[in-house]
Design a protein around this nucleic acid. Structure first.
Lengths: 195, 195
DNA sequence: AATATAACTTAACGCTGTTAACCATGCTTT
DNA sequence: AAAGCATGGTTAACAGCGTTAAGTTATATT
């Protein structure tokens, strides 16, 4: 395994175990038995290294979601599965999930957009499900792609409140997420306005 | 005005203008014409200072939402107004909004819970609206307080994706938010399952 | 054999949060 | 009035940070 890979492995481990604030170039270097400056031979700077971690976390999430897509269920069930595995991934890999949202896109205009191609593909996938539901008159949406983004944003909000422990102690997080998921899906479903 | 207040004013200003990463004790000190260590006479440490900022940002948001509560509209309209002003606040005061979500609760178990009383009150307020709608059979929810949390979480997800510029460039953020708001509210409304 | 390139090092710069020790001022108690 | 003490400030210093510049050493190419 190359030094570059060692750095990635160790820094991811450090990020997951100790959190974002405690990761430093010097500590990573010590872990892989190399001088701190050596890292700069493989990564432009700290941000660049972190971005590499973001990328691979996105890939993990992407894989977790894709696995759910093999089924030939109806769109509602598909969406539900997606929502489930999204939340499951976030809760089971909280640090991994947080890595994805760690770096602000605006702070890295220098980085090639292709790096985020993967995440765009997930959105397209969601949009496809929604489009299918729209055609079957199951979902009531204006623009499937936009709805894919709102769906994800809603799910992210739910995941993030749980992960960052902002939930009221009176509320069990499992029920919260399942309840939230229902509300979110419900929000897309076609309905006759109540009397 | 006391030095403590000066520090708060300047550090808030710095936080809003330059962002979280660029705020340092020394820079704040320079701005208020005092040595860096003097800040420690008024705040335990940097986290403590930031928490004071969080508190007052929460109060601002809380005020913005409370202002919407005077009306005697029906629950649906009320919820819509709340959602609108929540998103409006977030978009118009992005840095202020981010301050609220900056500090992780788990990282500050030392701080008194009463500090977050204000935010809890907002939740109770939302829960009250939802409870009202529930009794009028307008909303279909299990637990109004839990639903208040899911509502907020979803709104936060939407606000956060816009603020941190994660939205696809093809999607106009105004429409995105309005669309998302509709989905979110829709998710609470009682409905007859479609045929 | 000479040279280029790659992978690494040490030393240093200018930041950072935070602590320790010190000093002046003004209030309280003797 | 003298002594003591709390308050609000100071400077100096520590350890750690990201990053750069310059130097070294080994390997591959010509």
């Amino acid at each position: 395994m190359s030094l570059r890979d060692d750095i990635l492995v160790e820094s991811r481990d450090m990020l997951i175990k100790q959190g974002f604030g405690k990761v430093s170039m010097r500590k990573i270097a010590k872990k892989v038995n190399v001088s701190a400056t050596s890292i700069y031979l493989h990564f432009k700077n700290k941000d660049d290294l972190l971005l590499a971690l973001v990328e691979s976390s996105i890939e993990k999430l992407s894989d977790a979601l894709k696995d759910q897509m093999v089924s030939s269920d109806d769109p509602v069930a598909k969406l539900e599965k997606m929502a489930n595995s999204f939340l499951k991934f976030a809760i089971e890999n909280p640090q991994e999930y947080e890595i994805i949202y760690m770096v602000r896109h605006e702070e890295m205009p220098k980085y090639p957009k292709e790096k985020f191609e993967q995440i765009r593909k997930i959105y397209e996938m969601l949009a496809e499900i929604i489009r299918e539901g729209q055609e079957n008159k199951l979902f009531q949406v204006e623009d499937p792609l936009m709805s894919a983004y709102t769906l994800w944003a809603q799910l992210h909000g739910v995941a993030s409140v749980v992960i960052s422990k902002r939930l009221d102690t009176r509320i069990p997080s499992g029920e919260f997420m399942s309840q939230a998921k229902n509300h979110i899906i419900q929000g897309f479903i076609t309905q006759k306005t109540p009397v």
